[in-house]
Nucleic acid binder design. Sequence first.
DNA 1: CAGCATCCGCTTTGATACTG
DNA 2: CAGTATCAAAGCGGATGCTG
Lengths: 210, 210
Amino acid sequence: MRSYGQYCSLARALDLVGDRWTLLIVRELGVRGPSRYTDLRHGLPGIATNMLADRLREMEENGIVARVEAPPPIATTLFELTRRGQELMPVLFALGRWGAPLMGEQGEDEFRSHWLKYPLERLFADAAPDEPPVTLELRTGDEPIVVTTVDGEVRAHPGTAEHPDAVISGDPDVVIGVLRGSVDLRTAKRQGVRIDGDADALARVRPKAG
Amino acid sequence: MRSYGQYCSLARALDLVGDRWTLLIVRELGVRGPSRYTDLRHGLPGIATNMLADRLREMEENGIVARVEAPPPIATTLFELTRRGQELMPVLFALGRWGAPLMGEQGEDEFRSHWLKYPLERLFADAAPDEPPVTLELRTGDEPIVVTTVDGEVRAHPGTAEHPDAVISGDPDVVIGVLRGSVDLRTAKRQGVRIDGDADALARVRPKAG
DNA sequence: CAGCATCCGCTTTGATACTG
DNA sequence: CAGTATCAAAGCGGATGCTG
């Protein structure tokens, strides 16, 4: 990208990360950790392969991303955030929080379930932190997600749970609506959401105030 | 801009504010308050006039900016941030803080002194909050800035002070370097910085920890 | 002068095909 | 798997012209 040519820290930041796709690549590396090129492509639906290659090269030059050669048995190139890249997380959180009210209907948009990790962990909390912890499994999008309560907070990771307290499956927007409390259970079920197990466990994961 | 087509709050936020120039327009409206088209152009050196008109229209459609007809004697159109637009401030602050380490030399970059308002107020504090407050005047860039200490914090506004404790003038990068403590007074003076008044008052404005 | 709209050349982006 | 090559389309920057 062309530099803005302004002696201003915001403008200089945007000179480095204001390009199309750049912050979404940071999101992928932040959520997934060190990743292969192909996995990045999967997490960035819509990106052209040359775009991804170009951006990764620029971000490497700018000290945001590092390329590491994984030793056997992986034997492939991994991309990871540098320290400077990780320092972009507060920017992503601020932007993501600002965008939360825009998450109405999914419409035609693509969805990857690992995108839920940071929103769940930062925007949600355990409604009953003194009760024994609970484990939920979300089945929406391309892979299941395990959600657990820990010390009043919420943790989320891709994978399946051995003995979840509840399993919720359905379309992403409705599942998110149920967790946010903007869609009641009756409406959700009419829209194809299914809940197996203890519905009270589900109510433990609630949006934080503010 | 083309939508990313991703059901993710970060991607949806970038659909609205990820375009080139958009966040810098938010900066201008945030720092200056309701502004005329011409004043926005002055604060956004390098923008093409059709770009500014296009962006303002898009931002209005997206509920970030509102157009108000100022009554006489101003009798002109003013652009201002909506509430939703003001809610972007945490995003600007996060990006600006991330960009702070990039503020080395000014080089060929343009500079407008009102850009200093938020960095001064958010990244600096009063080093001796129990002492009587002080007033500084910065003469760098296109217009002077008055910096005052209030309740341990720092306030900055365009204008001149009646009886400033100190006046510091010189090139923006060196003046900023002195305030940040990354350039000592001897070096600064060799680079053309001049300090009139009480140099101790100047030392009251210090970068916050973190 | 304030507030745009138009035109034009250049750069960036996107879709697809192809390669070690 | 991890890219490169190619080409069309869209976006951007600069100059200029128009309207109250």
